[in-house]
C-alpha cells in the first residue's frame, strides 16, 4: 500500500508509446495557441512578410489599440453585465430551490427534482424560435434582459441539482439544532445552508459565469443593436472588420479569453471543479 507512488498504472519502464502520443497532442493543442499569440503580437506587415509560423520579429502591442478602437470595451461591459446578472440570479433562485428539494416534505419537491433532471437534456438550440416569440411579446427584444432571462433558465437545472447534491450531506442534527434555537426556514437557509454549501456555490457560480461569458446563441437571436453586442458577437463582427487583418483578429480573440485566463490563475480550483464536477453543457 505504501509503495504505490503513482496514481494509476505503476510503471516498470518508460512508456514510449504514451510519450509519443502525448507529444503529438501537445503539438496539436500548442501550435494553434502559439500561432494565435504570435500573430496577435506582430504588426500586419511583419505578419504578411514572414508568414504564419515565424516568430514575431518585433513585439508590438498596437493590435490592442486597434481592437479597443472598435467598441471592444462596450462589448466587454455588456458581457460583464450579463455575466454578473446571470450568476446573481441563478444563485438567488437555485439556492432556495435546492434547499426546498432536500428539506421539504411536500410531493412537489420530489416532482421538481425530476423535472430539473429532465431539464438537463433540453437542447437550448431547439427553443430559440419560441424564445424569440416570447421575448418579442414581452417587449424585451433587443435588450440585455432578453439575454439574461433564458440564460438563467437554462443554467438552473444543473445549478439546482449540484446544490441539492451537496445539501444532502448536511446532517439532520444541524437542522434540528437550529430549530431548537428558534430559527425559521429562512434563517436556516441563510445561516446553515449557504455556509455549508460554499464549495458548491463557488463551483456553480464559476460554471454559470463561464456559460454566460461564452454564450453566443441567445445574444445572436435576441439582440440586433451593435451597442448591445456581447463579446462573442463582437468577435463575429470583427471577422468582417478585420477581414485580412489576421493579427488584429487574433488579438481580439485573445482579449476575450483574458478575463477567463485571469480567473483560471486565481481560482483554478473552482474553475476545474466547476468544469469537471458539473459536467454536461
Amino acid at each position: 500500500m505504501t509503495t504505490a507512488r503513482a496514481g494509476t498504472p505503476v510503471r516498470t519502464r518508460p512508456n514510449w508509446l504514451a510519450g509519443g502520443f502525448v507529444t503529438l497532442w501537445l503539438v496539436i493543442v500548442g501550435v494553434p495557441i502559439y500561432t494565435m499569440i504570435s500573430w496577435s503580437l506582430q504588426t500586419r506587415d511583419d505578419f504578411l512578410d514572414h508568414g504564419p509560423i515565424a516568430l514575431p520579429r518585433a513585439i508590438t502591442l498596437e493590435n490592442i489599440a486597434g481592437v479597443l478602437d472598435t467598441g471592444f470595451v462596450r462589448y466587454l461591459l455588456n458581457t460583464a453585465i450579463v455575466t454578473f446578472s446571470c450568476v446573481a440570479l441563478t444563485l438567488l433562485v437555485a439556492i432556495p430551490a435546492a434547499y426546498a428539494i432536500v428539506r421539504s416534505t411536500s410531493w412537489i419537491s420530489g416532482f421538481a427534482f425530476r423535472i430539473f433532471l429532465l431539464g438537463l437534456a433540453i437542447p437550448a438550440q431547439a427553443t430559440i424560435i419560441p424564445l424569440y416569440l416570447i421575448i418579442n411579446r414581452m417587449q424585451l427584444y433587443d435588450s440585455l434582459t432578453a439575454i439574461i432571462l433564458p440564460t438563467v433558465a437554462f443554467a438552473l437545472p444543473l445549478a439546482v441539482l449540484v446544490l441539492a447534491g451537496s445539501l444532502r450531506d448536511v446532517s439532520d442534527e444541524l437542522y434540528d439544532a437550529m430549530t431548537v434555537d428558534g430559527a425559521g426556514p429562512f434563517r436556516i437557509m441563510w445561516q446553515l445552508v449557504v455556509p455549508m454549501s460554499r464549495g458548491s456555490i463557488a463551483a456553480v457560480g464559476t460554471y454559470s459565469a463561464l456559460g454566460a461569458w461564452n454564450q453566443f446563441l441567445f445574444p445572436l437571436i435576441l439582440t440586433v443593436d451593435p451597442n448591445l453586442r456581447v463579446i462573442t458577437l463582437g468577435l463575429q463582427s470583427y471577422r468582417q472588420e478585420f477581414q485580412i487583418n489576421l493579427p488584429g483578429m487574433m488579438m481580439a480573440v485573445l482579449l476575450t479569453a483574458l478575463p477567463v485566463f485571469v480567473l483560471y490563475l486565481v481560482a483554478r480550483r473552482w474553475l476545474i471543479a466547476g468544469l469537471a464536477g458539473l459536467g454536461s453543457r
Binding site: L89, L92, V93, A94, P96, A97, Y99, A100, I101, R103, S104, T105, S106, I108, S109, A112, I115, L149, V152, A153, L156, V160, Y175, M178, T179, A183, G184, P185, I188, M189
Partner: peptide, 14 residues
C-alpha cells in the same frame, strides 16, 4: 423547521 414549497417558486417560474 422545513421550507415550504414556495422556496421552489422562483426557480420553477424561470
Amino acid at each position: 423547521s422545513r421550507p415550504s414549497s414556495w422556496y421552489l417558486a422562483p426557480a420553477a417560474l424561470f
